[in-house]
Nucleic acid binder design. Structure first.
Length: 803
RNA sequence: GCGGAUAUGGCGGAAUUGGCAGACGCGUUAGAUUCAGGUUCUAAUGGGCGCAAGUUCGUGCAGGUUCAAGUCCUGUUAUCCGCACCA
């Protein structure tokens, strides 16, 4: 077989597509549209990873298929280029982050082009360009105007190594998301976005979108809605109320103590009343020094300090109860204080056991000597709730009572926290805020956007968590937009999540200087029809971007309430050793080398064929060769083509079946079985030894989304008109997909004993009679009693016999 | 600890949703082509027993439902991922 020269052929078609602007979408709004979105890459210095190729190949195939189906397709790409790795690399090498970013983007672009992705290259977006981040800042200011931005002095997660403040999301497990060193707690002024305001909308919106079920579930868990009640306990000897949040107000009669977070503000307010403030301080000190490891590993060992002379009263029975501080209660959730019901909460139970506090059972059914009982049961020791057996009833009754007595109210809490929205770094969007000694916090006027990131040589982080921008006097010093007096600019920048929270809107109209995107265009293109990306982004990025989008929707700036109609996620490509690819393990596969050795078509086919698209699968250097053979065999069709304008008898059925299978598999992320079916068809064609023009046309059209270069070349060699990517997707005839005659299995007592060829539409009796007439079957049932005989249409016959 | 997922040949993975387990590919073996290596082609390829026709065992493990179970039910083990004192 003639060898196929992939190097020149692939280059040739990439140049043609580029020159002809083949994959640019049109602004013809009468056409049906399809917006396919893939997560834009962070252009790191390491270049692309085969994982990127897999992530983009899925919707690449769908996009090419949609174009053949007559859709106006928007399949864009861009770069999420602000961020720490670039800045750190810049500091290390002395190059400016702008230069590093431009170099990396160039590298990524050439790599992406070599793979032949059908991106619309006229719509590339780069989050670090002024005309892009102008609108990131614009959205921030809109949020500011609408009360969604606030500043709060609070304990923050600070990474001493990166010298940055981190959100809870970025510092999970007490480790910095970027450098993995231990986080310390530090008090600082922080900018927040009030994402909790949108918690309910984000939850509700999930009902109307088509996300994979596990993606929805992860988002629900992340938002973490719980319903319960707020209850006010009076603090003895003061007018103060200690407010707590509980999901089980019905257990209020079982409260025997209360616990506050060590940082709870009431402690300082009433320090003079607390007899053992020294112990309290010592405990607080100990908590702040606890390492993340201790906190996570020693979960079971409760610690705490009882506050002397500081007690509360249980509002439902008037009993005086002690107050403790303990680090198992966190300031960040609920009100930072809890009512403890040791009989029915395991943490409270352990604490009570350790400190010798009373345990009062209020729900029957458990053993108070062993553990807390969290199940359902009859209410006891609970005054007016006694005798109720339904949890919902007792909660309702108690909630009504609290309301009536003015001591509490129903409430809702979310695990999701407000979004800490600043970083002390250079390579990010400047936050458009001015601090004026007279006017306070003043937003930069919209007319002054973009607030440019100053071009400087020294962008190393300041000491003590100050932003590098703080050292640049020409940036910091300004006049107040409101009163004109000397003022100082905010020097923190936005987190990396900012630019990626709305990029899909900019793709629609990337060069618009008047608006983030034209309203008419938004109306036509939104929502994104299909968004694919990594599983690791389905909580943070996906929630943040839905939040920004829903905010813009509430302002009337965008047309539909949810940005992404459908979301899927691809599985990782592991190294050949089955481990996650990483530079340190030396198991990284460079897509460039694969393209050099085998060609882009082979790489594309392999990343989709290697396994279930949604699951992780290890790379195999030898298995790639299978795809290389496949592509060569496709090319080999040029040597066995014959004339003919309709399918041959031998191939007719399999042609229709393959069209059907490939058509539906592509829609269901089953790229691996789609390619398997195409391989089977290829084998059939070679068995026959010839392929006529009609068959060839269908064959290469089906293959085109997967291996666009070789199929386009065959199209031309075979002398078809125009370009293959401008033809139409093949159709199939359902009637031609079914065979007239089928082979079925004949089972005796569930075991296959014979095969039988029958007419597809044969009835039960005919088939069973034919089965029984088979020599082997007749022998097996001879002298036996037939208990049961059945025919599953098109599948098998089973004859159940006994002696 | 909680939540989610997964478990099928030597390997990656299929299996019309309860109907012939192992599609497709890799690898391996034998043969052909070749000076040779590579490429390509043909055939075989889950394990056991058997020269063979066959036969038997087989989808992490133990039970169960069914004419029929990789698929459903009960229990159990292992691995991976996410969250982790959320009141």
């Amino acid at each position: 077989m003639a060898q196929y020269d992939f190097k020149s052929v692939e280059k040739k078609w990439q140049d043609i597509w580029d020159k002809e602007k083949t994959f640019e979408c049109t602004e013809d709004y009468s056409k049906k549209k399809f917006y396919a979105l893939v997560e834009f890459p962070y252009p790191s210095g390491a270049g692309m990873h085969v994982g990127h190729i897999k992530a983009y190949s899925g919707l690449e195939v769908v996009s090419r298929k949609r174009r053949l189906e007559g859709y106006n397709v928007l399949f864009p790409i861009g770069f999420d280029a602000f961020g720490l790795p670039t800045e750190n690399y810049a500091i290390k090498t002395g190059l400016h982050p702008r230069v590093v970013t431009d170099n990396n983007i160039e590298k990524f672009t050439s790599q992406l082009r070599r793979v032949g992705f059908s991106f619309d290259w006229s719509k590339v977006v780069d989050t670090t360009q002024e005309d892009y981040y102008k609108w990131t800042q614009w959205i921030f200011l809109k949020m500011f105007d609408n009360g969604l931005v606030f500043r709060d002095k609070t304990l923050i997660n600070y990474c001493p190594s990166c010298k940055v403040v981190l959100s809870n999301e970025d510092s999970q497990g007490g480790k910095c998301d970027i450098c993995h060193s231990d986080i310390v707690q530090k008090s600082k002024d922080v900018w927040y976005l009030r994402i909790t305001e949108y918690a309910d909308k984000l939850l509700e919106g999930l009902k109307e979108v088509d996300y994979l079920p596990n993606i929805k579930l992860q988002q629900e868990n992340w938002i973490g809605k719980s319903t319960g009640a707020f209850v006010n306990f009076s603090v003895n000897g003061t007018d103060e109320k200690l407010k707590i949040y509980t999901t089980r107000p019905d257990t209020l009669f079982g409260v025997t103590f209360m616990v506050m977070a060590p940082e709870h503000p009431l402690i300082d307010k009433y320090a003079s009343m607390i007899g053992n403030m020294a112990d309290v301080e010592a405990y607080r000190d100990m908590c702040s020094k606890k390492s993340a490891f201790e906190r996570t590993q020693l979960v079971k060992d409760k610690t705490g300090v009882k506050l002397d002379g500081f007690t509360a009263t249980n509002p439902v029975n008037g009993k005086e109860i002690p107050i403790y501080i303990s680090d198992y209660v966190m300031m960040g959730y609920g009100t930072g204080a809890i009512m403890a019901v040791p009989a029915h909460d395991q943490r409270d139970f352990e604490f009570a056991k350790k400190f010798g506090i009373d345990i009062i059972e209020v729900i029957k059914g458990g053993d108070m000597d062993v553990e807390a009982y969290t199940g359902d049961g009859e209410m006891v020791n609970s005054g007016f709730l006694n005798g109720l057996t339904n949890k919902k009833d007792s909660i309702e009754k108690m909630a009504a009572y609290l309301q009536e007595q003015g001591i509490g109210e129903k409430g809702v809490q979310y695990k999701m926290n407000d979004w800490a929205f600043n970083r002390q770094r250079y390579w990010g969007e400047p936050i458009p805020i001015v601090h004026c000694p007279d006017c306070g916090i003043v937003p930069v006027p919209y007319s002054e956007l973009p607030l440019r990131l100053p071009k400087v040589d020294n962008f190393e982080p300041g000491t003590d968590g100050e932003s590098p921008l703080a050292k640049i006097d020409s940036f910091v010093n300004c006049s107040c937009p409101k009163c004109g007096k000397a003022a100082k600019r905010e020097t923190d920048t936005m987190p990396q999540w900012a630019g990626s929270s709305w990029y899909f809107l900019r793709y629609i109209d990337p060069h618009n200087a008047e608006r983030f995107a034209d309203s008419e265009k938004l109306k036509y293109w939104m929502p994104v029809d299909w968004y694919n990306g990594g599983m690791e982004h389905v909580t943070r990025h996906l929630i943040y971007s839905r939040f920004w989008y829903k905010f813009l929707y509430d302002l009337g700036e965008v047309p539909v309430s949810e940005p992404y109609a459908k979301r899927t996620a691809q599985g990782l490509i592991l190294g050949p050793d089955g481990e996650k690819m990483s530079k340190s393990k030396g198991n990284v596969i460079d897509p460039n080398e694969v393209v050099d050795q085998f060609g882009a078509d082979v790489l594309r086919a392999y990343v989709l064929f290697m396994g279930d698209y949604e699951k992780a699968a290890p790379w195999s250097d030898t298995a790639v060769k299978g795809c290389k053979r496949f592509v060569d065999r496709i090319w080999g069709m040029t040597e066995i083509m014959t004339e003919g304008d309709s399918y041959s008898k031998e191939l007719e059925s399999i042609m229709h079946k393959t069209v059907k299978k490939v058509t539906s598999d592509i829609e269901n992320l089953k790229y691996n079985t789609a390619i398997a079916a195409l391989m089977t068809l290829t084998n059939e064609i070679y068995n026959k030894g010839a392929i006529n023009k009609a068959e060839l046309k269908t064959y290469i059209t089906l293959l085109n989304p997967f291996v666009p270069h070789v199929t386009e070349e065959i199209w031309q060699v075979a002398g078809f008109e125009g370009m293959l990517n401008q033809t139409s997707w093949p159709t199939y005839d359902e009637a031609k997909c079914v065979d007239n005659e089928i082979e079925i299995a004949v089972q005796i007592n569930g075991k296959v004993r014979e095969k039988l060829v029958v007419a597809a539409d044969a009835d039960n009796d005919t088939v069973i009679a034919a089965a029984k007439a088979l020599e082997k079957v007749a022998a097996a049932i001879d002298g036996m009693t037939i208990v049961k005989e059945l025919y599953v249409k098109g599948r098998l016959v089973n004859i159940v016999v006994k002696p």
